[in-house]
Amino acid sequence: RPTEQTETADLPACDSLNPGNLQLVSELKNPSSSCSVDVSAMWWERAGTKEPCIITACEDVVSLWKPLNSLQWEKVHTWHFTEVPVLQIVPVPDVYNLICVALGSLEIREIRALLCSSGDESEKQVLLKSGDIKAVLGLTKRRLVSSTGNFCNQQIQIMSFAEDGSSKDEQLLMPPDETVLTFAEVQGTQEALLGTTTVNSIVIWNLKTGQLLKKVHIDDSYQASVCHRAYSEMGLLFVVLSYPCAKESQAFGSPVFQLLVINPKTARSVGVLLCSLPQGEAGRFLEGDVKDHIAAAVLTSGTIAIWDLLLGHCTALLPPVSDQSWSLVKWSGTDSHLLAGQKDGNIFIYR
């Protein structure tokens, strides 16, 4: 169907959604004077053993927490930032002894690697990249992609890490003639990378050769879309986008996520599913994360909403806890848990 006929996901009423679908597993108390900005869960190697750890990021400190038992966590490392504030954690899959972070004020100015020296386990940080960084994403096979500059002087770079976390290799991808805003790796086609641009195109690269394979212009209904996930299946690309700038409409309500299908050969696309806010839920998309077929979003109302993209509707709503609005939501990279964060630094882990 053409995009204007995009199927709208069912809009169940708020009170029919059961927050009991989410069970609280544990909580991390992180009293800090600065604002909580990100959370992530990753494997960390200590003394030859890999442990599922949680990373919390405030503006001036990043902490690594290891599990004491199934309910309690212990802070084992902290890295401090006095000059440039932390903006986000950049998880790099397949790396077990290094955390990447993006630093800056509103826009990314630096990407740093945080690690521990093997001898005394003391915290170290290494500057990987600086400049006018527009987007960054950790990729499988210990790689990191970043874009710097705008359409006329844009550089898209892949950085590879050695097993010990040291920076090993650099490669450039052919830049498109539009500024790249977000990246997404493609599940099902290992060496393909997607990017979204400021003028609503999706670009496709070959990561191995650096070639720019295709530019697909998508519907202009919603500007500045963010690409969360991409899946390659039966010759088609299925792309999950979110729309932080979308306005509410009579026909589609308040759109949060959209599943788009693209034929990369013909550069044609159609919207197949639009996930809007459940009826009665006010606000719009603030930030979100997608893992497999489950999408989670923090709404401006301070509530977290979760959609099952296979069922096509919202399956759970998590209202603010202790009168504190949610500000962060991430899926764990080590299990199926949901990490929900509040501005004061407290992190709640749900199953």
């Binding site: 169907r1 070959n206 070639q211 394979l213 295709k214 390659s232 010759g235 088609l236 693209i262 050969k265």
Partner: peptide, 23 residues
């Protein structure tokens, strides 16, 4: 959703586009 609107589909799209695109 009808895939007819998307045009002809190729299972080998990645290899085909890689052989057509400039190096």
């Amino acid at each position: 959703c009808s895939t007819a609107d998307l045009g002809p589909i190729s299972l080998n799209w990645f290899e085909e586009l890689s052989s057509e695109a400039p190096p």
